[in-house]
Every structure is written in structure tokens, then in C-alpha cells.
């Protein structure tokens, strides 16, 4: 016992902590546990038999499990929605990164009149919430005959100011010698960009790609508005139908199947986040700072 106290106090001392930090740490970890528990409850519920779900007897770890709920999810065209989501998010992310890198490079390293003003216009647009322009945009897409198409899902998402901003910040501190060296070798600025600058911009490219992909994968309002056909819905919009109060499912099986559906829906975002956390958080912080 004495030895344990000794070890704890040495440990605390080494880290510059006090005894009062122990209850704070325990309290914080309990709060963290509570914070993460909705995810655990979601996964737990998704493996339960429907009759084990609607009960006040709480089982954090189910006595018996089933994958029926996951099978039932596929009664709706989930695979088609997943395909739509993937096509939309991948293509939009690709253009966001390429266009953002080109414009970000030009605004950071090329000299032409109006450069500062152009950047200010891009930044100012961030003050306009997309929701304001979404109704007129829907009207325009309907009038052109592009409702419920991939064009409608993708085109409004291919120019993202956040991506441009991340690249511009990176290229502002890009070593001039590298560009000069390329130009000495006779490369024009376009070749210098594609052969030297862009390949070295991996960090901002990953940060921008991760953020933009997640934004698109999770995007809700625009796909909800512009897809009238069941087959052109994206995954978040389609799966929202599993809500017991909106959808056609009864409440009894509703929750178990709904949890199975959103367990599958959240896996790509969570995996991307866990794997690329650093890039994700650096990009997100810059996105906040841009305001």
C-alpha cells in the first residue's frame, strides 16, 4: 500500500501533477465515457433482436446477437445510395483539390493585378451561408432539367474556398529557390507548378481532401432538395428514412434496423478520421480560423 502511494506520488511529481488532479482526471474520464457512449449504444443496439431493444432493462453488452438488422437495411436500395455518395464525394473532392491547389498557388505565388481583391472576394463568400442560395439553385437545376442527376449532386461542390485557403497558406511559405530552379531549367510556371509545387503539397492536399470528402459524404440539405428519385439519393438522405417517426418502419423493429443503418453510414467517416486525425484537425482548425 505504502509502495503504491509512493509510486503514484512519484508519477504525479514527474508529470507536474498534484493529488487534486486525480479526482479531476477521474471525473474527466467519466465524462469522456458518457460522451462516447452514444456510439457504443448505437453499435450495441444494431446487433440486438428487436424484442431486446424496447425494454427498460439495459444491456450494454447484449446476451444474444443477430445480424438480421443489417440484412434488413438492404431491403432499401442502400448499395445504390452508397454508390451515389461515393461517386459524388470522390469526384467533388478531386476537383476541389486540383482547382483549389491551382488557384491557391496562383494567389500565393504569381504576380498579376487584382490578385488580392480576388482572394478577398473568395473569402467574403464564406459569410454567405449556402442555405441562402440553395432554393434559387434548386430552381435553376430544375429548370435546366438536371434535378436528380449526378451533375446536380457534384457541380455545386467542385469549388470550395476552404480547399483554396489551405493551399494558399501552404504555398505562401513554399521555398522560392525550388521554383527558381525549375524555371532556370526552362520550365514555364505551369510546368513548375505541376512538376515541383503540386507534388510537394502533399500535406495540404491530404488535409483538404479529408475535410472536403467528409463534408461531401455527410452533406444533407442539397442532396435532400435536388434528388426526387429514390435511386439518386445519397446515403445520409436515404438512411434518414429509417427514422421511426418519419419512415415506414414500425417502432418495434425501427430502432434496431435504424442503428444498423447508421452504424454502416458512420463507419467511412470514422475510419477516415481515426486514420488521418492529424490532417483532419489541422484542416478543421484552419477552416475555423478563416472566419
Amino acid at each position: 500500500m505504502a509502495a503504491l502511494v509512493e509510486r503514484i506520488s512519484t508519477y504525479l511529481h514527474e508529470r507536474g501533477l498534484r493529488v487534486v488532479d486525480i479526482p479531476i482526471w477521474i471525473g474527466g474520464m467519466l465524462f469522456l465515457l458518457a460522451w462516447a457512449s452514444p456510439f457504443l449504444w448505437m453499435v450495441t443496439t444494431s446487433f440486438k433482436y428487436p424484442e431486446d431493444v424496447l425494454t427498460t432493462h439495459i444491456e450494454w453488452i447484449p446476451r444474444r446477437v443477430t445480424i438480421d438488422n443489417f440484412i434488413q437495411v438492404f431491403e432499401l436500395p442502400v448499395l445504390r445510395w452508397a454508390l451515389n455518395s461515393a461517386v459524388q464525394a470522390i469526384i467533388a473532392t478531386f476537383f476541389c483539390v486540383v482547382f483549389g491547389a491551382m488557384a491557391g498557388f496562383a494567389l500565393a505565388r504569381m504576380r498579376f493585378p487584382g490578385r488580392g481583391a480576388i482572394f478577398m472576394v473568395f473569402l467574403a463568400s464564406l459569410m454567405v451561408p449556402t442555405e441562402v442560395s440553395v432554393v434559387p439553385m434548386l430552381l435553376a437545376f430544375v429548370k435546366v432539367g438536371w434535378a436528380s442527376t449526378y451533375q446536380a449532386l457534384i457541380l455545386p461542390m467542385i469549388a470550395n474556398v476552404l480547399s483554396l485557403y489551405i493551399f494558399r497558406q501552404f504555398f505562401l511559405s513554399f521555398p522560392q529557390e525550388l521554383l527558381d530552379a525549375a524555371r532556370m531549367d526552362g520550365a514555364n510556371i505551369m510546368r513548375a507548378f505541376w512538376l515541383i509545387a503540386f507534388p510537394l503539397a502533399r500535406a495540404p492536399a491530404v488535409a483538404a481532401a479529408v475535410i472536403i470528402f467528409t463534408l461531401n459524404w455527410n452533406n444533407f440539405l442539397w442532396p435532400l432538395l435536388v434528388t426526387f428519385d429514390e435511386s439518386m439519393k445519397t446515403l445520409p438522405v436515404g438512411i434518414a428514412q429509417f427514422a421511426p417517426n418519419v419512415g415506414t418502419h414500425t417502432q418495434i423493429e425501427g430502432y434496431a434496423v435504424a442503428m444498423a443503418a447508421i452504424t454502416m453510414l458512420s463507419i467511412p467517416s470514422l475510419v477516415v478520421f481515426f486514420l488521418l486525425q492529424k490532417h483532419f484537425i489541422s484542416g478543421i482548425s484552419q477552416g475555423g480560423i478563416k472566419q
Binding site: 449504444w41 467528409t214 455527410n218 444533407f220 445520409p236 429509417f242 427514422a243 435504424a258
Partner: peptide
């Protein structure tokens, strides 16, 4: 990092 659908359905439950 998860979508509104995930948030909404988890909390409805």
C-alpha cells in the same frame, strides 16, 4: 465527423 443522419437517429433512440 459523422452525418446529421447518424446524430439524429442515435438521439431519437
Amino acid at each position: 465527423v459523422v452525418s446529421a443522419t447518424v446524430i439524429g437517429l442515435v438521439w431519437v433512440w
